[in-house]
Amino acid sequence: MTALLEAPPAVKRAEPRKHRRKMIGWAFAAPFTALFLIFGLLPVVASLVMSVTDMRATDLRTPLAVNFVGLDNYTRLFSDDLFVRSAINTLIFVVVGVPLTIVAALAAANALNSGLIRFRALFRVGFYLPVVTSIVAIAVIWRFLLDPQAGLVDNLLARIGVDGPAWLQDTRTSLGSLTVMAAWRNFGSLMVIFLAALQGIPQDLYEASRLDGAGRWQQFRRITIPLMRPALLFGAVITGIGYLQLFEEPLVMTQGGPLSSTLSVSYHIYNQFGFGNYGYAAAASYVLFVAIVALSVLQFRLLGQRDD
């Protein structure tokens, strides 16, 4: 303050104004930042701390009076058969579901971009419809569609002479059913992203390659795919992040069954929270968090390697 008062007049005028500017910036940032610190950042840190304690539901009112247990929760996790099972299920769901969703989205985007003008908006809106609807409602609908007796799917199959399985009640088809349903629900959002990317590809590239005698498939492989790389990478990353958090579908459709064949990591965490094992649930959630970051980094490495 004294330094400020002793400064030459020119600076004296500039300094308070600069200081004021800084205050204004923070004044605008403050409301969000306060809420964000309390309900966003604090819980992220608290979760990490909880994961190395033996906190249980009975400690709800005294969250600071818990015991430090080191990495016990984490070592217990990896010897917990249910957690390992849920991790394998989730991994299968991601590894099969992400490519399936991307292929469906890519096919839809290319079909809608291939010179077809009429009804384009109708198809786009239709394909996007499941994305905006509640997963719980969709899970309710699909549970009925996949019903072995009165369900639409098996009855349509019966018409062409196929004896459809009990999709959600059979351990061989339960996880696969949820995977296909997730692709069905989510490909629309990737389609919109891919459509935007496709429209950014200059048409003269296709014309030039046509003069060189390239066929449709070659054009798709040599021009479309390489130029869509950033969009594909982005799509793979956000779909992967979403699919790793699989939760509502098994909760509503299968309750994790039959025989834990659809138990996901998130569902397992939710169950452990329900049993009151807060520290244990927090540890499992951090493993999921690390998996999400790792998957994103891996995808950037694998798919983004040719980017400069």
């Binding site: 500017r21 204004i24 992040i241 807060y278 968090f289």
Partner: peptide, 28 residues
């Protein structure tokens, strides 16, 4: 607006997009 900590704040908020709901819901 220019204010100290602007970039750090933005990156922190952006990083939050990666955090799954399962991580925050128990402490919340």
């Amino acid at each position: 607006l220019d204010f100290p900590g602007r970039k750090a704040l933005f990156l922190t908020v952006l990083g939050m997009l990666m955090v799954p709901g399962m991580v925050t819901f128990v402490p919340q």
